Amino acid sequence: MVAQWEPGTQYNLGDVVVYEGAQYKIIQPHRSQSDWTPPVTPALWGRLPESAWVGDQQQQQQPPPTYNQGGDQKPWNEQSSQQVHIDHEERKKNWFDLDDDRKKQLEIGGGLLGGLAALGAGYFAYKEHEKSEEEKKAQVWAFQNWLHDAQARTEEYHRNGPRGPATWILNHGRNIPQNAIAGGEEHGEPLYIARAYYEGGIMVGKASARLKKGAAIGFKHDEIDVETFEILIGDMRGLRWVDTSGHLDVQSLGATPVEGGRESDGSPIYIAQAPHHGGIHPGKASAVLDGAYIPYDGTEKKVKEYRVLCYA
């Protein structure tokens, strides 16, 4: 029989638990905390589809839910569990490309729950007052799909190991994996390379056990604290830092840069490191940015001379 999830318990690779009627499999070993429940820590737990459930519960599958269109369900942002299946191809779609019936199913069946829980109330308090309800749903949908892809990458890494010298895996909070790649240092302590979804893009920043939530990214001259993010792990023997300046010209580097993320329009962002205020700080560079941009002291700093992480 599969055990119920409990706080204060050490969970290791291969462990499966039950929480609120669903099964979750460990992604990253950790000791559980009361506020680290499986649904809100996708960097630690992967939700198993019912077809993959183990133990006694495999025989207790429920029929597919029906969706009452009468409007008496809880609002989309107050759902307690996810009851709708979302396939891989559908996750590639923009929210505004889904038909109205499918949107309603996702709303009242908890299909936006994973993204909403991971984003947290702080995100909505910070920026979402500026958006319409439909724009909020689109943001949660896009965030959730990034999170799903990141979780799949992480599960693949734990199953089969790295496929190259640099791999992005999900991380949560201030626990830094042992093989995380240092992108700089401050006050004699390493700063690691992080990225996270924000406002339609995937932004590159820094991670450290000293940061408020574990990581911080830069966006439109602000430093944004994030708790659920990807961290770059790997082996520097297969990588190197290449000096450059100003707008990034990939062809002039003499090496292939490691892609860090993308802007909301799909243009690539690369991993940079730049000196500032006595330290070396990880950040982002691209063809449209006039220098490296690093999150620092609540804002973004532009540094003209910087280095880009490339494959050796």
Score class of each variant (00 low, 15 high):
P282V: 06
A138R: 07
G173T: 03
E6N: 12
Y306N: 04
A22V: 07
G205C: 11
R31S: 09
I176V: 15
M1N: 05
N171A: 15
P190D: 04
G109C: 09
P162D: 02
N77Q: 11
A216Q: 14
I181M: 05
D222N: 14
G173R: 04
N12F: 03
T154S: 12
Q151A: 07
D149L: 13
A292C: 12
I27N: 04
P65W: 07
N175V: 14
E156G: 04
K92Y: 01
S252D: 12
W53C: 08
K74F: 09
K137D: 06
A142W: 09
D222L: 13
I271E: 03
Y192S: 05
K206E: 07
F219A: 08
P39I: 08
G261P: 02
K131T: 02
G279W: 08
T167G: 01
Q4H: 13
D97Q: 13
L232H: 06
A52Y: 04
L106G: 02
W241N: 10
P268F: 06
A3Y: 08
S252K: 15
N171V: 05
R159S: 11
Q61I: 15
V54C: 04
K304H: 13
R163F: 05
I271G: 02
Y192M: 05
K301N: 03
V16E: 09
D97W: 04
Y270W: 11
P49I: 09
W146V: 10
T228P: 00
I176F: 11
C310G: 09
W5L: 05
G260I: 01
R163V: 05
Q61D: 01
R159Q: 15
P42V: 08
P29I: 13
K93P: 00
F219K: 09
S34D: 10
P282S: 10
I280T: 14
A312S: 14
S267Y: 05
R102H: 07
